Simulated assay, not measured.
Amino acid sequence: MPILTVLKSGHWPSLAGAWLHLTVSFMVWLLMGALSIPLARDLHLSDQETAWLIALPLLGGAMLRVIAGWSADWMGARRTALVILLAELAVLLWGWQGVADYQAALAFAACLGIAGASFAVALPIAGRAYPPTAQGLVLGLAASGNIGTVLILFFAPRLASTLDWHHVCAVMAGLVAVTSGLFVLLVPRERDTGRHDAAHWWQGAAGLIRHRAAYWLCFLYAVTFGGFVGLCSVLPLLLHDVYQLDALLAGSLAAACGLVGSLIRPFGGYVADRQGGLRTLYYVLPLIIGAIVAITSPSFAMAVFMMVVTAGAMGFGNGVVFQLVAEWFPKDIGLASGVVGAAGGIGGFFLPVAAGTIKGLTGSYDIGLWLFAGLGIGAWGTVMMALRADAPPAAGES
């Protein structure tokens, strides 16, 4: 079915609103990574301290995605999405006026995690506006809102070169306020705001926890999506430390990597709709593993090429995994999106912390990147075993 025909089969303004929500929220979520170089300079931070500032929003987002997924299923995705935007606005205003030392910056970074919860509401809003046959493409398009990674990595260092980083928070607060208004206009009120039955929701959660496929999808998403956001967060610092690039050029190259990974994500879902998610992952994961090992190549040109390849493969894999989420958990997509998305945030937290901490101890990012590649090898092994034994049953099957 042609892509335009698929888009016309549902309510495209809801898809646009979901995409906008996720795009701006991604900008807020990765703000600390985009500002890592001026933050490290202004606050006189060590490698380990900077790594924690970069990673804390990713961990906070991981935890809050589960809560947002619950709220999307029970209270309504639209209402939950508006709460998230208002919370982002409040945190950014605090960053503008109230963050002056490392301890406050840590708390601010953790609170930015609320933006990472957007995934658990944006995808249900988009998915419920379209028929089941369009889920892979539609969820991929909505999730391509992670292009916010590109925008923040490109623009934040440029703003910080002329403004104090506190004022960058003020600019972002204005953007979030405008987004809130557009979201209200694009996404209609839900006819049924949710299940309104906590017992029913907890039964669904218990069923999800008992299903072994949920754990597996969490692991796969921790490698693909977690690798993507973690890599994009740490790349400006890595390029600055290893190749002595200034903040603007480092941010531009990191943004280029994020652009490739963001734009290719819908095609991951599109291919998975037609070829099968597991078979597609079988070919994508080795590319991630090989490319991430070579990121710190002595050749700068080769290193940049491998960064782009890694981000692109991870972005493609993101779309594939969420096609599997929609296929296996169609009745609890908000809950499943929250749980699986949380695992992605944890994977994203692991990469910058491991790379930054080990770099502080050894002077090199290599070992931290190799550790993450080891997780990719484990994920690839599970996919190979599943293909040999046939795919796990979908949710609700015995």
Rank of each mutant, 00 (worst) to 15 (best):
M302R: 06
Y270H: 13
H240M: 07
C232E: 09
G319F: 13
N318H: 11
I295S: 04
G276H: 00
G230A: 07
F322H: 12
V325H: 01
G268F: 09
L220H: 03
L281W: 01
Q244W: 12
L324H: 02
I289Y: 09
A254N: 05
M302E: 14
L253W: 07
L238P: 05
L263H: 05
A313K: 01
W216D: 00
L217R: 02
V320Y: 11
A213Y: 00
A214D: 00
F219E: 00
F316I: 15
V223P: 02
M314Q: 14
T310G: 08
F316N: 12
R265G: 03
R279H: 09
S297L: 11
G312K: 08
A256M: 13
V242L: 10
R279A: 14
G277R: 01
V242S: 05
F305V: 13
S297W: 04
V271I: 15
V308D: 04
L287F: 02
S233T: 14
F225M: 11
L248K: 04
A311V: 15
L237Y: 08
A255S: 15
F228Q: 01
L253P: 02
P298K: 14
T280K: 04
G276V: 10
L248Q: 08
V260D: 06
Q275F: 09
M306L: 13
A272I: 03
L278E: 15
R212S: 12
M306E: 04
V271T: 15
V320M: 12
F300A: 14
P266R: 09
M314L: 15
A311R: 06
I295K: 05
A301D: 07
G258N: 10
D246T: 10
V271A: 13
D273E: 15
V242W: 08
L278D: 10
Y221V: 00
A247Y: 07
P286S: 15
S252C: 03
A222E: 03
Q275C: 07
S297I: 12
L231D: 06
A250W: 00
V260C: 13
G290N: 08
L324Y: 02
A256R: 00
S233C: 00
I295Y: 06
Y215V: 01
L217H: 01
I289M: 14
G269R: 08
V320I: 15
Y282M: 13
S262L: 09
S233K: 05
R279Q: 12
V229R: 00
P298C: 11
D246Y: 01
V321M: 09
S233Y: 07
M302I: 15
G230T: 07
M314G: 10
Y243D: 07
L324N: 02
Q323S: 13
V229M: 01
V320C: 13
G230H: 11
P298L: 13
L287S: 07
G258C: 09
P236H: 07
W216G: 01
L287M: 15
T310E: 11
T296I: 13
V325T: 02
G227D: 09
G317R: 11
P236T: 06
L239M: 10
I295M: 14
T280N: 03
P236I: 10
V293C: 08
V320L: 08
G269L: 15
L238K: 10
V325L: 08
A313N: 00
P236R: 09
V321N: 10
A214V: 03
V284F: 05
D246W: 09
L263R: 01
F267M: 14
G227N: 02
Y215F: 13
L217S: 02
A255P: 00
G269P: 11
G251N: 02
G258W: 05
I264F: 08
G319Q: 12
